[in-house]
Amino acid sequence: MKINLKVWRQKNNNTKGHFENHTVEATEHMSFLEMMDVLNEQLIQEKKDPVAFEHDCREGICGACSMVINGRPHGPQQGTTTCQLHMRKFNDGDTIAVEPYRAKAFPVVKDLVVDRSAFDRIIQAGGYVSVNTGGAPDGNAIPIEKDTALEAFDAAACIGCGACAAACPNGSAMLFTSAKVAHLGKLPQGEVEETSRARKMVAQMDKEGFGFCSNIRACEVECPKEISVNNIAYLNRAFLTASIGKE
């Protein structure tokens, strides 16, 4: 199948980017990234600079992919990362626009690679349980209801890819931040610090320059792990309690 690609090229964050047109001969069994590999092999053969894009595990879990395909982070398939998206979802002769995540808090490094360290700093602000190694009580000391554990798991399934903030017309990181607050807050081990966690993580999120959530839900729709906006409501509640409820 023939694919017409409109790929974003940008040397670094200080230069302006532009779209570049390429044609790639793909097969329907290729993953989207393998199609990009073919493009790069082509460019290398022509002694040109290959397109920089981030990828690693290629099995949908590391969260490195950061492409926007036809305006959608990770492309058109529901609950699927770019690396698991296959060319059979496209048609012969399609024109596909490939761009980097666009959000002020994710500056472009090169081409399709962006800097997502803001997410690390949000976690560093309080996305953990403050226990040192050693001295933990027995794993079965505190029973946790099966459904509660599952809810915490669903929030913890976040892969930190940043698609939520990239999809959000407001460039908001609420889904990412809230998933961590909900994951930890729903478990008794993490609930202990919830007040300070919610306060500090939201403050850091604001500091990083992410936008405000206006409940558009594009994050939920585009999240490759289908993290629910229920978590955002959870964070709103936790933050309100922390800010105006608790002494």
Binding site: Y128, V129, V131, T133, G134, A136, P137, D138, G139, I142, P143, I144, E145, K146, A149, L150, A152, F153, A156, H183, L184, L187, Q189, G190
Partner: peptide, 13 residues
């Protein structure tokens, strides 16, 4: 296992 549970790892229950 104890350490991971204390960290909030959501193991199956």
């Amino acid at each position: 296992i104890d350490q991971c549970v204390a960290q909030g790892v959501p193991f199956a229950r």
